[in-house]
Design a protein around this nucleic acid. Structure first.
Length: 796
RNA sequence: GCCUGGGUGGCGGAAUUUGGUUUACGCGUAGCACUCAAAAUGCUAUGGCCUUCACUGGCCGUGUGGGUUCGAGUCCCACCUCAGGCACCA
């Protein structure tokens, strides 16, 4: 008997698949295109993580079933190899990122091949390939041309360890997303993308797309829409006024002081009116040095300084109220200033108590008090009335901030912009607001990243490219004079914000994507990935698609109508991390048990969208299962006994269950159904036809062993191109059912009965049962509940 | 503090579609078979307590406490707890 040599089988079929293009759809002519996309990995660590494999396997199973259902499935893969994560890894091991990329690339692709996914190997994308980032730069210039990219000086997040600025989305609880260092604020001029312009659309479209609910919620919270009013408080004896945003204009009469954020530009205008300006300045300086983390660590303890010598006027009642500067007000939200209502806001209350400010209640039981002519009015109604009185206007405010795109690092796509001082002095430029700035013309793209020996981040607020004269010296595209290139590189998240568009057009030389191919394959049918990207990648990618759609370059607005987040794989109750030393490398498991075993085990341990706990011994259950599959098929390969009615019913029930389970990503229960199926075959024997059905149902989960056994059956074409079985409803109907007999809701007996049995039949059967009779003990039932084909319950 | 998802055997998890047999499937454990022996494999048992020589039968059991119902893991209310996310956003 032939032995199950999984290593040999897996390597053999992986080669055959690749050489014969089994998983290469015809991108131009496909009739039923199905784009099965998964988030591409970043090759930063020592190798592919078992968590990556978990994600890829789950996505692949779905794609394999779709392929067997007759779709032209396109399942591409690539590497998100540009960016800080890869650069930091290179730094750590003392390699140059450009050299390291080639090494990592080889290793990752080898591992990705070993897991046995149906990848379309001919269409790979590596974000650090100049043929790719040429178009990343082109996307940047498109943003620029449409007025969506701009430079601005403001306080930004700075990671002192990564020595670069970060987007808000990359600051997690005050720490750097990559290295967990505490992020500080720095006043710098940087490139931004105007994502806030799309806040409403990004929010509204969430209603139209089929995504994991938790990801939608995270995006909603991140965008953070608030409805309210913008009100003006004039400053006594000056032409200035303070604008505030509030969601509670109904409490205006209770506004007893105002607070400006430390960065508020108005403060410096009152240098001579403010009697304690030294103290104020000191406070502001101090606040600027504080990190987000320090502010959080101080807890709710409020600090601040009064701007002595100036007063604001409450527009509702003309009361003169004091003005403070305090860091509990953020410069980056709303107008950077607030009206403080200590009676109805916890934070204002804490501040007022500390500084002994009056606290006036203006709402009681949902109605206004102490509010002049508004007294007694419903608070909800009063809001708009008071706004009108105060000369304010309705305003919708978002928490979302513009996307900070520049990075002071080496390993990224250079921002394709040129600055000409001469043009600037003449007030010339491509954008009115930004004289001197020009995009690199498309014919000059890509702006190639040079091989720089000392690529380490400088920490001076500049990229290492700023010390490479050959790089930054260039000609002005407008006047032809001496000009300087932008030396910052773009955020890695720009690379991954459009990669899915490139895959099917990867052979296109003169365009970022081919319009006909794009029309055929987009939007993506299913996108799978981690929920950790809820407000990073998944927000940026929608934003970029939206702008390209608006520019008429894409026929869709939402790139991923269906997205599913897979769960997190943990190890014995703890997150896998290098510091804990519990990271699982899939290579060893593949070598010892085979890729099919590991794939199935990963999918069996919990629902795919929930994630699960990896436990070493549990893999054995699947190893045994595949051994038994092999033995059964090899042993009985020539035997062909006719299947019983009962076997057929099980077969069709299983077809239906597995078809539904794969559709809903409940792979764990699908595998359990396969196990039940196998147990039955071992007991009863299996005919050729049912064996084929079984192998087909198993094929998406264990692609290699099923391919081998399929060819053993004498098949000449791949099982993965065979047709998915369809359940015949004729065999789904059961003839008998187990009647549940209860007395007072408690189970007393179960009796097999023909389907459609009447209540009379059921009662008769029940009273013929000794145990039921004992429970009833001769009493007459007060009530009898009969549920056809299920149960009968006697209430006594 | 706010939002989201959980809590079922020794363990991972089934069962919520439509309230109707709790613990499918697998791991682990125990016993048996095979073996000189072990591993592997196969078979049997496996929620707790009680009852019976045995066959059997009973009671309890899905985080806690209430409620609705003939009947609740499933629906309602309150709470406890774990995991994840956001966090001075006015």
């Amino acid at each position: 008997m032939k032995k199950y040599n999984f290593n040999k089988i897996e390597q053999y079929w992986q080669r055959v698949w690749k050489e014969s293009g089994t998983y290469e759809p015809n991108l131009k002519k496909a009739k039923k295109p199905f784009y099965n996309l998964m988030m591409f990995p970043y090759p930063s660590a020592e190798g592919l993580h078992v968590g990556n494999m978990y994600a890829f396997t789950g996505a692949d199973i779905y794609g394999r079933k779709k392929r067997m259902e007759g779709y032209d499935v396109f399942e591409p893969i690539g590497l998100d190899g540009f960016g800080i994560h890869s650069e930091n890894y290179a730094l750590k091991i003392g390699a140059h990122p450009m050299d390291q990329a080639k090494i990592s690339e080889k290793r990752f692709y080898k591992q990705l091949e070993a897991i046995g996914n149906g990848f379309a190997w001919d269409e790979r994308v590596e974000t650090y390939d100049p043929n790719y980032y040429k178009w990343t730069q082109w996307v940047f210039t498109e943003m620029w041309r449409r007025g969506l990219a701009y430079r601005k000086k403001q306080f930004v997040n700075w990671c002192p360890s990564c020595k670069t600025v970060l987007a808000d989305e990359q600051v997690i609880a005050g720490k750097c997303e990559r290295c967990s260092s505490i992020v500080v604020k720095k006043d710098m001029e940087q490139w931004f993308f105007r994502i806030t312009k799309y806040a409403e659309k990004l929010l509204g479209n969430l209603e139209k797309i089929d995504w994991s609910e938790k990801v939608k919620i995270a995006q909603r919270n991140w965008i953070g829409r608030s409805e309210g009013a913008e009100l003006k408080f004039s400053i006594l004896n000056s032409q200035f006024s303070i604008k505030v945003f509030t969601t509670r204009p109904d409490t205006l009469f209770g506004a007893t002081y105002m607070v400006l954020a430390p960065e508020h530009p108005l403060i410096s205008n009152f240098k001579f009116q403010i009697s304690n300006y030294d103290d104020v300045e000191k406070y502001i300086k101090n606040a600027a040095h504080k990190s987000e983390m320090e502010r959080i660590e101080e807890g709710r303890e409020k600090t601040g300084v009064e701007l002595k010598g100036i007063k604001a006027v409450n527009p509702a009642n003309n009361e003169k109220i004091p003005v403070f500067v305090a860091d509990y007000v953020l410069s980056s939200y709303g107008t950077g200033a607030i009206m403080a209502v200590p009676a109805h806001d916890e934070r204002d209350f804490a501040f007022a108590k500390k500084f002994n400010l009056p606290i006036i209640e203006v709402i009681s039981g949902g109605r206004l008090i102490n509010s002049g002519k508004f007294n007694g009015m419903d608070s909800e109604k009063a809001g708009w009335e008071i706004t009108k009185l105060a000369g304010g206007e309705r305003k919708i405010q978002y928490r979302l901030r513009d996307w900070l795109i520049s990075r002071q690092r080496y390993w990224g796509a250079p921002i394709p912009m040129i600055y000409c001082g001469v043009c600037a002095s003449k007030n010339e430029g491509e954008q009115k607001e930004m004289p001197g700035w020009y995009a690199v013309p498309e014919k000059d793209l890509p702006v190639k990243l040079p091989y720089v020996k000392d690529f380490r981040p400088q920490g001076k607020g500049e990229s290492p490219l700023a010390s490479v004269k050959k790089f930054y010296e260039t000609k002005c595209p407008h006047c032809g004079g001496k000009a300087r290139r932008e030396t910052d590189v773009s955020d890695t998240f720009l690379d991954s914000a459009w990669y899915y568009l490139r895959y099917p057009s990867v052979k296109e030389k003169n365009k970022a994507w081919n319009p006909e191919i794009t029309k055929k394959w987009f939007p993506v049918n299913l996108y799978t990935g981690g929920a950790e990207h809820s407000v990073l990648h998944l927000l940026y990618v929608r934003f970029v698609a939206m702008t390209l759609h608006e520019a008429g370059k894409l026929h869709f607005e939402e790139p991923f109508p269906k997205f599913r987040a897979h769960g997190l794989l943990i190890k014995e109750g703890a997150k896998m991390s290098k510091s804990k030393g519990n990271v699982i490398n899939p290579d060893e498991y593949i070598k010892n048990f085979g890729a099919d075993s590991l794939r199935m085990y990963l999918m069996f341990l919990a629902p795919f969208e929930q994630g699960g706990d990896f436990r070493d011994e549990a893999v054995l259950g699947i190893v045994r299962f595949l051994d038994r599959v092999w033995n059964l098929c090899v042993k009985e390969i020539k035997k062909s006994n006719k299947a019983s009615e009962e076997t057929l019913r099980l077969t069709h029930r299983t077809i239906k269950k597995i078809t539904n389970d794969i559709e809903s990503l409940h792979y764990n229960t699908a595998i359990s159904a396969l196990m039940i199926f196998l147990n039955e075959f071992e007991k009863k024997g299996v005919d050729k036809e049912n064996k084929e059905v079984f192998l087909k149902l198993l094929a998406p989960f264990a692609p290699h062993i099923t391919e081998e056994l399929w060819s053993e059956l004498g098949k000449k074409t791949s099982i993965h191109k065979s047709s998915w079985p369809i359940a015949n409803s004729k065999f789904l109907k059961e003839e008998d059912f187990d009647l549940v007999i209860q007395v007072n809701g408690k189970l007393r007996a179960t009796i097999k009965m023909p389907r459609g049995a009447s209540q009379r039949d059921a009662e008769k059967a029940a009273f013929g049962n000794e145990n039921v009779n004992n429970s009833i003990a001769g009493q007459k039932p007060k009530k009898t509940i009969f549920v056809p084909n299920r149960l009968i319950n006697f209430v006594i």
